[in-house]
C-alpha cells in the first residue's frame, strides 16, 4: 500500500514531500498552532506543526513532557480547536470526522465503566454513537473486537476482575468497535509494566497489520515507537513543535526479533540522541 513511504530512505524532508505528492494524507496538519490561556496569559503550547500521515500508516509522536504531543493528538481528535492553521482527517474537519465515526480514541487510563462487564464496555461507545443500532448487533461487534484483542472468554468479567493490560485491551476493543479509519492513542500502555507493555505492543502491531487502520500513537517509549511505527515524529519544547521526522525502515512483519534488526538499533539510537538533546534544551 504505502510503498513510496517505505522506499524513500533519503532525507526526511524529501520523504515527506514524496508522500504528499503520491497520495493525499489521511491526517494532514498545516501550520497548526495551539494557544492556551494559562492564568489570564496566552501561552503557545504547540508551534507551527506540519504533518502528513498517509492512509494505513502507523506513526508515533515522541518527546519530553510538555512538548505538545498529547495536545496535537487532541487536535486530531477534534477535542481541541487549533488557534491557527488547518487540520484535516480524511479530508474533513476532525469534528466532522468524529461524527462520521472515523476516529477511535484510546487513552492512558482504560476508563472502563465499573458497572458494566467487558463486552458491555466494549459496546458502550458504539451504542452511544449509534442510537439506532440494535443492542445484539453492537454486542456481536464488541465480541468480535474482544476476540481481535485476545480477550475471548473474558467477555462477562467486570473491570475490577481484569488486569491493567486486559482493561487496556477492552479500551482498544471499545475504540475498534466503532470501526474507525483512524486510531488515535495517547500513551495507551504508559501505566503498564514492561512485559505487559511489550505484549500489548505486539497485540497492537497484529491489529494494525490485520485491519490496516491509520494509527497515531503518542508514547514515551523509544522501543515502542520503533517497533510499531512507519514514521516517528520527534517533538521538542521551547517552543513545542516537531523537531524531526524519522522514517522507520525495520522490515515487516515485525515481532520480537525486530528488536535486534540493524535498522531497529540504528533508529533507536538516533531517537535516543534526539530525545536527550531535546531534554537538555528543556532544562
Amino acid at each position: 500500500m504505502n510503498v513510496t513511504a517505505a522506499k524513500s530512505l533519503g532525507p526526511q524532508s524529501i520523504a515527506a514531500a514524496a508522500m504528499k505528492q503520491t497520495q493525499p494524507a489521511h491526517i494532514a496538519a498545516t501550520n497548526v498552532a495551539v494557544d492556551f490561556i494559562v492564568s489570564g496569559r496566552r501561552q503557545r503550547v504547540l508551534h507551527d506543526v506540519n504533518l502528513a500521515v498517509p492512509k494505513g500508516s502507523f506513526v508515533s509522536l515522541i518527546g519530553p513532557s510538555g512538548c505538545g504531543k498529547s495536545t496535537l493528538l487532541k487536535v486530531m481528535a477534534g477535542l481541541i480547536e487549533p488557534s491557527q492553521g488547518d487540520i484535516r482527517v480524511a479530508g474533513i474537519r476532525p469534528q466532522e470526522a468524529v461524527k462520521s465515526r472515523l476516529i477511535g480514541l484510546v487513552f492512558q487510563d482504560a476508563t472502563l465503566l465499573p458497572w458494566k462487564n467487558a463486552i458491555e464496555n466494549a459496546a458502550f461507545l458504539l451504542m452511544t454513537a449509534d442510537e439506532t443500532m440494535k443492542k445484539s448487533d453492537a454486542m456481536d461487534r464488541a465480541a468480535e473486537k474482544l476476540r481481535l484483542v485476545g480477550l475471548t472468554g473474558a467477555e462477562k468479567k467486570m473491570p475490577s476482575q481484569l488486569s491493567g493490560g486486559m482493561r487496556q485491551r477492552v479500551a482498544i476493543a471499545r475504540a475498534l468497535a466503532l470501526d474507525p479509519e483512524v486510531l488515535l492513542m495517547d500513551e495507551p500502555f504508559g501505566a503498564l509494566d514492561a512485559i505487559t507493555r511489550e505484549e500489548m505492543s505486539e497485540c497492537l502491531l497484529d491489529i494494525w497489520e490485520r485491519t490496516g487502520k491509520t494509527v497515531v500513537l503518542v508514547t514515551h517509549s523509544i522501543d515502542e515507537a520503533v517497533l510499531l511505527s512507519r514514521e516517528v515524529h520527534v517533538m521538542g519544547t521551547g517552543p513545542a513543535r516537531i523537531i524531526e521526522t524519522l522514517p522507520i525502515t525495520v522490515p515487516h512483519p515485525r515481532n520480537e526479533e525486530s528488536y535486534s534488526d540493524p535498522a531497529f538499533t540504528a533508529a533507536e539510537s538516533r531517537l535516543r540522541s534526539l530525545l536527550i538533546e531535546s531534554h537538555r534544551r528543556t532544562r
Partner: peptide, 17 residues
C-alpha cells in the same frame, strides 16, 4: 475521569447524554 468525558464527546454524545 476527564478522559472518559473526552471519549464520550468524541462520539458526539451531548452533555445530557
Amino acid at each position: 475521569e476527564p478522559s472518559f468525558v473526552s471519549l464520550m464527546r468524541s462520539v458526539g454524545a451531548s452533555k445530557n447524554k
